[in-house]
Design a protein around this nucleic acid. Structure first.
Length: 743
DNA sequence: CTCCCCACTCTTTTT
DNA sequence: GAGTGGGGAG
């Protein structure tokens, strides 16, 4: 019996079809990773394909790692020379070798979104753009979309003809590009764009990589955008052995430029493409699957398919509605604890999925209280933390002196008495003489009006130059230690003597061990460890990559991050109109936006293997405002008989006052929602029913303890409350933020 | 030059 | 509520 006998009919067909374009429409949990790994094995073992000629592109580094591991098990020998990586790392690997052909330096820096924003601020300042009208974030997102569509600044300008604000954006785009180039830096989108440009302009390069990658496989194909498609098309156009795997129902990255047409039109672009559908689901119970099918059925313009399974019905889906988001979190945390205590599962069998990162906070609070191990994926990336970015900026400055952003970030960190005036003088000089910021620094004695600042700048330059010499002969970890010591970075944190500073020092320790780990892997792989190499690895990691199946913790993440994962027990939290589907998509006039949310819901439901719990809250605090939301429209699309109706229609026992307030709020919501065409704050709390306490009442505050209310002033949509606290004295605060409780 | 306080803005999802 | 930028004092 061969390894291929374990596959079902369709899977086998996909594995055996090795030549020519192939589209595998793989529903959730239909074993597509299995197909891909077996296909690779088949290519190598049965077709005699050189592993070196295979390229497999996945969505995350984690997925790449898993695929490599699984291929390793199937293929005894040569698996390590298969190129398995994400789009971005693939491009970086290519660009590191050849980007000089496009006029960049090969040790370019990669800018993350923080860096992009800083750069954009500079650009706006330089062009005297009013950032009240043109928001940095909006500008960046427009530019990013342009890049996704392979629209150059020149082309953008031509298209903007006659439109004042578009023309303004074109100007920004041009300047932004200019500055990136001057800093020898690429943003995330550039990694793809420049690679495509490389292949478009250098025929021999394209030829080389076409020869190299004779067999190409792309996972999560539904989420590719135009640049990615173009890259694949170019690479595959010679041998045409392109196999893409995807599920149009799981396309959830339109906001990032994903072009669903890439999958819907695959057969038109590659006319002789073979199409195979995988519809048998091996992951979930039939109840879960039927719920997913029922929801996704409401979308139009999808490739028709229905998942089925012979896993049996399984448990019904639990549904619970709560008064507040706190109750919701408490229930879920308690439920997990119960299951684990009863020995039914371990913590890492459970995942909590939600729409926005902000929702994780309440859960975190409850998990800390309950002393249950948990892990939040997403939110602020480790490498985006201030102390980490500071230290990395030192490394970047040493590695690529043209990266002005990095230099300016650290020039006065830790404080060495270099102020804004000095920095501006240097900047002016740099601009006037068309040199980089660091270059200008080195010529500090030529800069006029710098006065006393000069000596400080000189010693900063001396410090960096010293590190540059060190870098020639030291390992990265040694250099990092040197930097920390010479700059007194940790020392200045220690001096702060705060809990926050302590946490930062811990993060720095963690960074050190990550550097050492990088050096170790390089040694294992017999590759030299380089500063550029480390920085690039750091730039491309996603938080999800750090997820570890062997640790026992409950996993919390957004629905987007959950794509491609599976868990025995999944909790979908915050199923409310206005949260999920989000307020933005409900009010947008494009119905496709809600469809994308529905696909997201489909992704969420299909993550569950055995049990699925759906929850929502009648009210929740969002950015300091209480919102009253209806239950999500997606919930209503799930057939009632699949739900455990347990507590759903049970009238919660509420105090009459609370009930009245809720009804009133709901009424307000209704009238507002249906009379105003586009109300600014559709879900906002009306300031009608008072804060629930009055002057003279005793109240309790989370931080300040107990006190007496001395005044309440109604202002706008909130109450300003003055409280004379027993301990810390008199404080003024807004009622919705303070969350005061009457005692 | 640095620190601190106040006011203002966040309103999605991410490689 | 949190994070940031501006303004003013020291």
């Amino acid at each position: 019996m061969s390894i291929y006998d374990t596959l079902n009919e369709q899977q086998k067909e996909a594995v055996l079809h090795t030549e020519g374009p192939l589209l595998i429409l793989a529903g959730a949990g239909s074993g597509k990773t299995r197909v891909l790994t077996h296909r690779i094995a088949y290519l190598i073992e049965e077709q005699g394909v050189n592993p070196w000629n295979i390229l497999a592109i996945t969505f995350t580094n984690k997925a790449a790692g898993e695929m490599r591991e699984r291929v390793d098990k199937l293929v005894g020998f040569g698996a390590e020379s298969i190129w398995v990586s994400t789009f971005h790392s693939t491009c970086v690997r290519i660009l590191r070798r050849h980007i000089d052909l496009l006029g960049y330096d090969n040790n370019f820096t990669i800018y993350d979104s923080d860096d992009q924003k800083t750069l954009m601020k500079d650009v706006c300042k330089l062009l005297q753009i009013d950032t009240k009208i043109f928001k940095e974030r909006a500008l960046l997102s427009t530019i990013s979309h342009a890049k996704d569509e392979l629209i150059t600044p020149e082309e953008f300008r031509i298209r903007a003809e006659g439109d004042f604000s578009q023309k303004k954006i074109a100007e920004v785009y041009e300047e932004y590009e200019k500055q990136l180039r001057a800093n020898n830096a690429l943003d995330f989108d550039d990694l793809l764009v420049k690679t495509v440009q490389l292949f478009q302009t250098q025929a021999d390069m394209l030829e080389y990589y076409q020869e190299r990658f004779r067999y190409i496989m792309v996972d999560e194909y539904q989420d590719t955008n135009t640049v990615q498609f173009e890259l694949i098309r170019l690479l595959a156009s010679k041998y045409r052995n392109l196999c893409v795997v995807g599920d149009d129902d799981q396309s959830i990255y339109k906001f990032r430029g994903a072009n669903i047409k890439n999958i819907l039109n695959f057969e038109h672009v590659f006319e002789d493409a073979k199409v195979i559908k995988l519809e048998q689901n091996y992951r979930s119970t039939s109840n879960i699957l039927n719920a997913a099918n029922a929801v996704i059925r409401n979308n139009r313009g999808r490739k028709d398919k229905t998942l089925w399974t012979d896993n049996g019905d399984g448990e019904k889906l639990e549904f619970r509605q709560f008064d507040t988001a706190y109750d919701e979190a408490e229930y879920i945390v308690g439920d997990i604890r119960e299951h684990v205590d009863r020995g039914e599962c371990t913590y890492n069998d459970n995942a909590i999925l939600y729409r926005t990162n902000a929702q994780s906070r309440i859960f975190e609070e409850k998990f800390v209280n309950a002393n249950i191990p948990y892990k939040i994926v997403g939110g602020i990336n480790f490498y985006a933390r201030r102390e980490i970015k500071d230290l990395l900026s030192y490394l970047k400055t040493v590695d690529n002196g043209q990266d002005d952003l990095a230099v300016r970030r650290i020039i006065n960190v830790p404080k060495r008495g270099i102020g804004l005036t000095s920095i501006n003088r240097v900047q002016e000089y740099a601009v006037r003489h068309e040199v980089g910021f660091y270059e200008a620094l080195r010529a500090v004695d030529l800069i006029p009006n710098i006065g006393r600042g000069a000596s400080k700048l000189e010693s900063f330059v001396a410090l960096i130059e010293h590190f540059k010499t060190d870098a020639q002969e030291m390992s990265i970890s040694r250099l990092m230690k040197e930097i920390i010591e010479e700059t007194g970075y940790v020392e200045s944190l220690e001096a702060e003597d705060s809990e926050e500073a302590e946490a930062r020092i811990e993060n720095i320790d963690e960074l050190m061990s990550k550097i050492v780990a990088y050096e170790d892997t390089c040694e294992e792989m017999n590759e030299p460890s380089t500063l550029s190499g480390f920085l690039e690895e750091v730039a491309l990691v996603a938080d999800i990559d750090s997820l570890d199946e062997n640790s026992d913790y409950v996993v919390l993440m957004t629905l987007h991050s959950a794509k491609g994962l599976e868990f025995p027990h999944v909790y979908l939290a915050g199923l409310e109109d206005g949260i999920f589907p989000s307020y933005m998509t409900i009010t947008a006039d494009d119905p496709e936006e809600v469809e994308e949310e529905r696909r997201l819901c489909y992704v969420g439901i299909t993550r569950a293997e055995k049990a699925l719990t759906l929850t929502c809250a009648r009210s929740r605090m969002i950015r300091g405002e209480t919102q009253y939301n209806k239950m999500s429209r997606f919930l209503k699309e799930i057939p009632m008989e699949l739900l455990s109706t347990g507590a759903v229609f049970e009238k919660e026992k509420e105090e009459p006052a609370k009930q009245a307030a809720y009804m009133q709020a709901r009424q307000a919501f209704r009238t507002k929602a249906f009379t105003a065409p586009k109300p600014a704050r559709q879900f906002g709390t009306p300031a009608g029913d008072g804060p629930g306490y009055g002057v003279g009442d005793r109240v309790r505050h989370m931080k300040f303890g107990e006190g007496t209310v001395t005044a309440i002033v109604e202002g706008g949509r909130d109450y300003e409350v003055t409280v004379d606290f027993d301990g810390p004295g008199t404080k003024k605060m807004f009622a919705t933020y303070a969350r005061l409780q009457k005692v």
